[in-house]
Design a protein around this nucleic acid. Structure first.
Lengths: 226, 226
DNA sequence: GACATATGAATGAAAG
DNA sequence: CTTTCATTCATATGTC
C-alpha cells in the first residue's frame, strides 16, 4: 500500500474526536466514539457506491469537510469508515459468493450436469416468512430483515434482498454480471459497476461463470477507485 | 494472528448471516435475531470453558454443524457468540481485577503497610443482595446475575461469583494464581490455567502479587486458545 | 405492559 | 488488508 492514502490518523486537526485521553482505566467513562449522523451516512454511502471505495488522503479531507456540515467528524473517522466499509463489503460479498457457489453445487448435483457458460438467477418479490429453501435453517434465522430500504427477492430460489435504489452490482454479485429484463433488454451499468436504476420484478441476473468460483479474484473487486 | 479465524461470516446456506446490508442507518428496524437453544448454549459454553475461546474459522464451521442438530444456526451466529462471550468475559474479568486492585489499595491504606509477597483472598458462599464493598462500579452494574450455573462468593469481602464446575483461573484471576484448600493442599491447574474441579467453600485464592498491579499483563489473559 | 436484564448483532477504532 | 477489541444498539426474556 502506498503512503498516499492514509490520513495520518491520529492527530491531524481532527475536529471531533476527543483523542481518547490516555487516562487511567478504572474511572474513564466518557469515551465518545463518533456516531455518524444519518445524513453523513447517506453521503458516505453514496460516495462509496459511486465507486470511490478508497479515497486518497486529500479526497478524504474533502469528504470530511462535506460531512462537517452535519456534525463533528475527523479525517480519521472518514478513513476508518471507508476501511471498515471496504472490509465488510468484501466479506459480505464473499458470503454471497459462497451462497451462490453452494447453490451451484447443489444444482450440479441434482440433475443436469451440463455446465452452461453462465448461470441464471431470477429475481422475484417474495413474501416474508418463507421457509429457507437452501437447506439452511428455517427457524429463527436472522437475515430476513424487512428493512424499509430493501426489496425481498429470491435469487434462484434462495431468499435474499437487494437495496431499493441504485445497486452496486460488483459488490453485490461480483465482477462479471449483467442484468437483463424479462423482455431481453440489458440494463446499463456504468464503469464502476453501478446499476443506476432500481431493480424491479421481472429482471434476471446473469453471472458469467468464471467470476464465481475463485475467491482470489474477489480481491480485485471493489478496487475500482483510482 | 493469521487469517485462519474469521468464518467468512455468513454462510453457506441461507441460514444465517446478515452481514449487515450496507443499509443506511436511519430507517432500519425489525430484524429477528437468533436465539440459541439451551442445548446449543450448553455446547457453546462447554467449548468455551474447555479453553477454546476463539475457534478458528474451520472450527467454527464444525461447531455450527454440531449446533445445527438442535436448531438453525449459521457460522456468523457462532462467530458472534464467541466474540461476545470473549468480550464480556474479559470485561467481567476487568471488573474483578478492578475490585481486587481497589481492595488492595484499601488494604494498603488501612493499617499495615507491610507488603507480603502474596495476597490472600478467602472464598465463602454468600447470600445475594450484598452491597458491593469495593466501591468500584456504582451505577447499574450488570455483573450480578443470579445465574443458575454460578456460585456466589466473597473474595476478600468483595462479592463475586464463580461458575459452578471447571474454572478458568487465568481468565478469572489473572496469570499468577494458585488455589489452596484450607487444609493447605494446593489444587492442580493444567497448562491452560484451567482448574478442573469445581470450587468449594473452604478454599482460598492466592495471587502471587506481581500479576495484579499492571493492567498490561491482562492482555495476555484469556489467550489460551491455540 | 412497562421496566430490567441478558445477549445477539452492528460498527467505530485499532492492532497485526 | 485482515482480524480483534470495545462499545453501542436492539431485541428477547423474565418479573412485577
Amino acid at each position: 500500500m502506498d503512503d498516499q492514502n492514509r490520513p495520518n490518523i491520529t492527530t491531524t486537526n481532527c475536529s471531533t474526536l476527543p483523542p481518547a485521553p490516555p487516562l487511567a482505566a478504572a474511572v474513564e467513562q466518557v469515551r465518545t466514539r463518533w456516531t455518524p449522523k444519518p445524513e453523513q451516512i447517506l453521503i458516505l454511502e453514496s460516495i462509496f457506491n459511486s465507486g470511490m471505495v478508497n479515497p486518497p488522503k486529500d479526497e478524504t479531507v474533502r469528504i470530511r469537510k462535506l460531512l462537517e456540515k452535519f456534525g463533528a467528524v475527523g479525517d480519521a473517522n472518514v478513513f476508518y469508515w471507508f476501511q471498515n466499509r471496504r472490509s465488510r463489503s468484501r466479506r459480505h460479498q464473499r458470503q454471497l459468493q459462497a451462497n451462490l457457489a453452494m447453490q451451484q453445487a447443489a444444482a450440479a448435483l441434482s440433475g443436469h450436469l451440463s455446465e452452461p457458460p453462465s448461470w441464471t438467477y431470477s429475481l422475484s418479490t417474495s413474501s416474508s416468512g418463507s421457509s429457507c429453501g437452501g437447506g439452511g435453517g428455517p427457524g429463527g434465522n436472522d437475515i430476513w430483515s424487512n428493512a424499509a430500504g430493501t426489496i425481498p427477492v429470491f435469487i434462484d430460489g434462495v431468499p435474499s434482498e437487494v437495496p431499493r435504489g441504485p445497486i452496486d452490482m460488483k459488490a453485490s454479485f461480483g465482477d462479471n454480471v449483467i442484468i437483463v429484463h424479462s423482455s431481453g433488454q440489458i440494463l446499463p451499468v456504468d464503469e464502476q459497476g453501478i446499476l443506476i436504476q432500481s431493480l424491479q420484478m421481472g429482471y434476471k441476473i446473469y453471472l458469467t461463470g468464471s467470476s464465481l468460483m475463485s475467491s482470489s479474484n474477489l480481491n480485485g473487486v471493489g478496487q475500482y477507485n483510482a
